[in-house]
Amino acid sequence: MCEQITDKNVSSLVEKHDTFIFDCDGVLWNWPHVIPGAVDLLNKLTALGKQIFFVTNNSTKTQDDYAKRFADIGFNAAKKADQVPSDLQAIKTDEVQLDSDITCVISALDLHMSYLKVLKAATHLKRKEVLFLGTNDDASLPTNDEVVMPGAGAVLAAVTAASGRLPTILGKPHTPMWKVIQDEFNLNPTKTVMVGDRLETDIAFGNNQGLTTILVLTGATNESHVNELKEQKTDKSNIPNFYISGVGKLAQLINDSK
């Protein structure tokens, strides 16, 4: 576990897997800046016949938004073929109307969260037949700044506390997002790679589903964390199989191996 990817093992790693799943923020870009080599890696894997999927906990963007973003950086990501269906990836919450027709409350990242919205959500959830879903439980957003930016998990915590209900969480590291991809595209977990920058979401997500996991150090995790992981003897759920400095280095190693 936690083996560095080098010219000695990269060919075997690529040849053994037919599917690569990528997180986006901190892996392919730190928006608006694209990680050097990211597009080269995506195009190289595509040329090698690999399936590529993008799995993000960012629920503020639609499939169209992401398709345009990928097109802007030079990669043609087909909607639905390469991305998680929008009911998981891009759920947006509007103000909940207090009427008996509401059958589901979805808690997502809301930059305009208000007391009234939490009140309405919690009130609907008093009815046990109302489904309670959370897009993800990320406590904060990935950022290199000193300011802490609360994530969807902070919104979810408020609704959970007010309602006394526990949600079904759709995003990483939980199982529902993987089940949607696996069922729709018939993926084999033993031939699938998860590439991410966050240990508690991306890597735990891959490990929980039996995928091969690669940690990149261009986002939420740095090399000092890797050294700590190598000494970790208890919780193994967030320890990656492999790590590398970034997707650009991975692209370089793959190119040099051919």
Rank of each mutant, 00 (worst) to 15 (best):
D7K: 11
S11K: 13
L13N: 06
K16V: 03
H17N: 15
H17E: 12
I21A: 08
C24E: 08
W29S: 05
W29H: 09
N30Q: 15
W31A: 08
P32E: 10
P32W: 04
P32M: 10
H33Y: 14
V39E: 03
D40N: 14
K44D: 14
L45A: 09
L45S: 05
K50D: 11
Q51Y: 12
F53V: 11
F53G: 13
F54K: 01
T56V: 06
N57F: 09
N58S: 13
T60N: 10
T60G: 02
Q63F: 00
F70P: 03
F70E: 05
A71K: 11
I73R: 03
A78P: 04
K80W: 10
D82W: 08
D82H: 12
V84D: 01
V84P: 02
P85M: 08
Q89E: 12
Q97D: 15
I106Q: 11
I106F: 06
S107Y: 05
S107R: 10
D110V: 06
L111A: 15
M113I: 14
L116S: 14
L116H: 13
L119F: 12
A121I: 07
T123D: 08
K126V: 12
V130K: 13
L131R: 15
L131S: 12
F132C: 11
L133I: 07
N136P: 04
N136G: 06
D137G: 04
D138C: 08
L141C: 11
P142T: 08
P142V: 09
T143W: 00
V147R: 13
V147F: 10
V148Y: 11
V148R: 06
P150T: 06
G151A: 07
A152C: 13
A152F: 09
A154Y: 05
L156H: 02
L156A: 00
V159H: 10
T160K: 15
T160M: 12
R165H: 08
R165N: 06
R165E: 06
L166V: 13
I169T: 14
G171Y: 05
K172R: 04
K172L: 09
H174Q: 15
T175V: 13
P176T: 08
P176S: 11
M177D: 09
W178E: 04
W178Q: 00
V180F: 09
V180P: 06
I181A: 07
E184T: 14
N186A: 14
L187H: 01
L187M: 09
P189G: 00
V195C: 03
E200P: 00
T201R: 05
I203D: 04
L211G: 01
T213G: 01
I214L: 02
L215S: 01
T218N: 04
T218K: 01
G219I: 07
E223M: 14
S224R: 14
H225P: 03
H225Q: 13
N227H: 15
E228I: 06
L229Y: 08
E231F: 02
K233S: 11
T234N: 12
D235M: 04
N238W: 11
N238S: 12
N238P: 01
I244S: 05
S245P: 00
G246P: 01
V247Q: 01
K249V: 10
L250A: 03
L250H: 00
Q252P: 00
L253H: 01
L253V: 03
L253Q: 02
N255R: 02
D256A: 12
K258I: 04
K258M: 06
K258W: 04
